[in-house]
Write a protein that binds this DNA or RNA. Structure first.
Lengths: 242, 242
DNA sequence: CGCAGCATTGAGTTAGGTCAAAAGGAGTGG
DNA sequence: CCACTCCTTTTGACCTAACTCAATGCTGCG
């Protein structure tokens, strides 16, 4: 059978990201059934949307490669980035409650996602307890993450926000086998600013400040963290400003 | 059998809040099984905590009466209110992912909650599809709500934040049979400020401004909304500031 | 090579924060 | 019932972190 050019059949059982998006400790037969969860893969070009606000919800998406942002938009056109997602992370959870998505998911670089029809997920989690619990954990994790962002937006200063952002990114990248100290930002200053509740100029200035203080080396989107302890100190103790 | 003074056995099947916390359209037998979900009720005195950060997660809680706030705390002691919850709403979802709670839930007035052990919820949702989907929807709703708060914290001005807050509260109260235009705030200005990412003085000043503009009547915690359209206009079109 | 989008930096403004004082209520005990 | 205390709220004066506007500089892509 032929598949459309932008989709391809695929299996979780031999996917190297499995331990990121799927539960561990499944039996052989459970693992086989999980393979059926992923209907197809879908490629999303840089700048293209995976789904958008108002669109009918059908599936969750596991990111295989690439980098996304999700954002919500107000009536008057302002938008707020609500998250940046990378390989192994699941997006689309916002769509469950109203059967329609309430945010946009946009690829920040060419990406590929595994499309998992939600009715199949529900079907299978009724039979595989480990999957059921895993789905609950993924949703709970997202709630806890957003709690953290609320704390950041509601009570941190610009430097703290950017420091927390960098530490979070580098920690997630490290979990995927990348460097602990070096990263390439996939998003613009404006997108970082939107996520952190700051204007792009403030993001840029704060980067410059980190450079001056010898905490980071920043060349456009290439960031090298020279003093991670200093970054952590900024997040934990805002009063250590000079 | 005797029960402890602060707990009492109870049934969902004849609870008037059922349509708020439970799925609708259950069969008689499903309904009976749902009754078993609620282990006990628990009373929480004003100012007492239902659960707190670090505590082992065992159950979700459906609020029967009373009013709660949830808040996260930073290492250096600042805290951020992440939500206010009222009758019919479910709290405790944050605890699923790490088996421990990551926030505090504190009663803002004497309250009573239905304790639903999570392992029973999972057990039963494997058998009752409607319950399974309902749990998914509750978690998704919380994710969407938090998206909205991120938008508020990340890109709204003080007046917009307070207007959105009041409209949201009054809408939820109205869904519970209370007035569309009058409400009694269960929380202090400081708690409102924490939720909205503002200082208590700013909250107070913004209330005063609404009063001056004839939008609200505010006497301490008693608020009467005189011009809901004006409030909506503030939220949707921030540029209508004078 | 040149253009368009992104990033940096400077100068001036402002929304909201900080600090301080005073006043209004709610609860308690005499 | 009143007096007292404690907590919350309001309001004023001043300050500052971040925003706005504007100019300039990169850089990667066609």
């Amino acid at each position: 059978m032929l598949l459309k050019a932008d989709t391809l059949k695929v299996a979780c059982s031999n996917c190297n990201l499995r331990e990121l998006c799927m539960p561990v400790g499944l039996s052989e037969t459970e693992l086989q059934r999980i393979d059926d969860l992923v209907a197809v893969r879908r490629r999303v070009k840089r700048g293209a949307t995976l789904f958008s606000n108002g669109e009918k919800f059908t599936s969750l998406y596991a990111i295989r490669t690439g980098f996304f942002k999700t954002c919500v938009v107000t009536e008057d056109g302002r938008d707020q980035v609500t998250g940046f997602q990378m390989a192994g992370e699941i997006i689309g959870l916002d769509g469950i409650v109203h059967e329609h998505h309430t945010c946009d998911a946009i690829a920040l670089e060419d990406a590929e996602v595994c499309v998992m029809p939600f009715h199949r997920i529900e079907e299978l989690s009724r039979e595989v307890g480990a999957l059921q619990h895993h789905v609950h954990k993924i949703m709970s994790r997202e709630i806890v993450r957003e709690n953290g962002v609320m704390l950041l937006l509601g009570s941190m200063r610009a430097e703290e926000r950017l420091a927390a952002f960098l530490l979070n990114l580098v920690q997630r990248l490290h979990a995927r086998g990348f460097s602990q100290s070096e990263l390439v930002l996939r998003m613009t200053r404006e997108e970082i600013g939107s996520y952190l509740g700051l204007k792009l100029e403030t993001v840029s200035r704060t980067f410059s400040k980190f450079v001056e203080e010898g905490i980071c080396d920043v060349r456009q989107r290439h960031v090298r963290i020279l003093n991670p302890e200093a970054l952590k100190a900024i997040v934990n103790n805002p009063s250590c400003r000079d």
